[in-house]
Every structure is written in structure tokens, then in C-alpha cells.
Amino acid sequence: MTRPATLPGAVVAALRCPLCASAFALDGRSLRCPSRHSFDLAKQGYVNLLHAGIPAGTADTAEMVAARVAFLGAGHYDGLRDLLAQVAAGTGGDGLVVDAGAGTGYYLAGVLDRLPDAAGLALDVSAVALRRAAKAHARLGAAVWNLWEPWPVAAETASVVLNVFAPRNAAEFRRVLRPGGTLLVVSPERGHLAELAAVAPVLDVDPRKEERLDAALSEHFELVSRQSLRDRVTLEPDDVRNAVRMGPTGHHPERLAALDGVTGPAAVTLAFSLSEYRRTA
């Protein structure tokens, strides 16, 4: 019989009880703190540490996650994952890598492949997504959490924090990073998937997005480098549907009706920005 997945030791050591901030010990299939608070691991290996509800439309749904798994599995964002892993490896990070908004763990698993001495913690508000993330890599552990709340992670624990198309909590980025630690932020550039606007609503990218990003992080971080990655790819009809369904539009099924009319391939633009920041003292 296959044993249920569990949490790597380095992840257990980094996690903190969301009720009292104490350290955890793994007791069988449960995380327990000295105050006797207990959180059971799901059979897939992730742990849900949330103790309050979240607004509707916040967490990715099962349909959105399925679309993302299919789209990423087709390899369209492999170049982005490889670039992120390359930059992360260049930081020399050999401790804990925290992926804030990790989704299915696609990017974090790629980074861990390039950092053989690191462990990874995937944080996301979607338990559906973390069922996948928990099994994405042997050195990866996953915890359900709302990124806008103070994280259940010990201070100055991480050598690298990843943030890929996800909410940015600058204060928590800084708190969990070691002094001199690295924050890697991936965001879409103007024109990303813009061609899909012909078949479904897609979010336009603010032309001042990078300026606003730098300003939001300036209190805690300094910009080290920024790279752009642009490409033109041809998406088959199923890829087009998955690209739309896996994003914010997926929370609005009434906006997806036009996808039924997609019958042929579409040439689209991929445009990403990867920004590397260093934690200030």
C-alpha cells in the first residue's frame, strides 16, 4: 500500500501555529504545538492552517485548477519556469524556498530541481490547488493559508521567496526572509495573452505595473535585476480555453460562453517580467 504524503522536516520546522505562534511537531498525521492546537494532514500531504473563512471568489476552484494543470502540462510556460529556476539557483539559496501563491507547485518544483539542498513550502488559499502541489516534488510541503494574513511561518526562515502571478504581502515577504534573502516576483507584461480578448474578457496590464511594484516593495527591498521574457506561441483550441479558465475569468462562468466558439488555433503573445529583489537590513 502506498503511504500518504507528508511534510518534509524542514517545512515542519519552519511552520508556526496560526493560533499561538508556537513551533509545531509532527505527531503521526497531525501538526501539534505545545498549546495542544492540532492540524491534521490531508491524505495528499498538505495541511490546512486556516481558522477563518475567505471571501467567495478568492480561492481557485477545481475547474480553474484542472485548466491550469492542463495548460502548464502542455509546456507553454516551461521557459518561464526554467528562467525562474535559473535565477533562483544563482542566488545560492540552500535553505527554505517559500512560494507565496504557489498554486499547483509547478514553479516551486522547478526551482527545487535546481536547488538540491533546499526544501520548499507552498502557501496558497486553494486547498484544491495544494492537493497537486503537495505531490509536485519530494522536498515540497504545502499549507493552505490566506496570504493577506500574517503567515504561519517563523521569522527569517527562508533564503528565497517566490511570488508568481500572486498577491504580494511585502511585510510578510521581509519578515520570513533571512537578512540578505532574495524575493523573486513574476508578473505579466503589457500584451500578455492580449489576443485572447477577442474570445473572452482578459485583464489588461497596467503600463506602470513595474513602477508600482517597485514602490510597493521599496520599504523592505531593493531591486537587484529585472528580466523580460517574451514569446509568440500557437495555442490549440483546448489551450485557449484553459488559458482563460485558469485565470481570474474562471471565477465568472457566465463570461466563458464565448469559448465554445473557439474551433481553431490562435497565435498569442507571452510576456513576463521577472524581478529580483534583496531584503534590506
Score class of each variant (00 low, 15 high):
P8S: 06
K43A: 12
G110V: 00
A23W: 03
P201F: 11
T234Q: 15
S275R: 06
P207K: 15
I54D: 03
V176M: 13
A14I: 03
D204V: 03
V12A: 08
V199I: 15
S225M: 08
E156P: 05
R68C: 08
R36N: 13
V240D: 08
E156I: 04
G9S: 13
A155H: 06
A198R: 12
A200G: 12
E149P: 04
T269D: 12
S30M: 06
D40I: 05
V153T: 03
T157I: 00
S35P: 01
L184D: 00
R212L: 15
P265N: 13
G181Y: 03
S275N: 11
N242Q: 10
G120D: 09
F272R: 07
D117Y: 03
H51Y: 08
T6P: 10
P167A: 14
V87H: 01
G120V: 12
P237K: 14
R68T: 08
T182H: 06
A127D: 10
P179G: 13
A170H: 10
D99E: 07
D231K: 13
D231W: 12
V87D: 01
S35H: 13
R208D: 15
H137R: 09
E195Q: 11
A158C: 11
L31Y: 05
A85M: 02
A257N: 10
V224S: 01
N146R: 10
A243T: 13
H220K: 12
A266R: 15
K209M: 13
A74L: 09
D238C: 15
D60Y: 01
C20E: 12
V185H: 03
G95C: 02
F221M: 08
R68S: 06
T6I: 11
R16P: 04
K135R: 15
H252E: 14
P248G: 10
A281F: 08
R139F: 06
A215M: 12
S126R: 04
W151H: 04
L7H: 10
R29H: 09
A100R: 01
L83W: 02
L177W: 07
A25G: 14
R131L: 08
A14P: 06
L121W: 02
R174K: 14
A88Y: 01
A166L: 13
N242F: 05
A136L: 10
V47I: 05
D239V: 07
L41C: 11
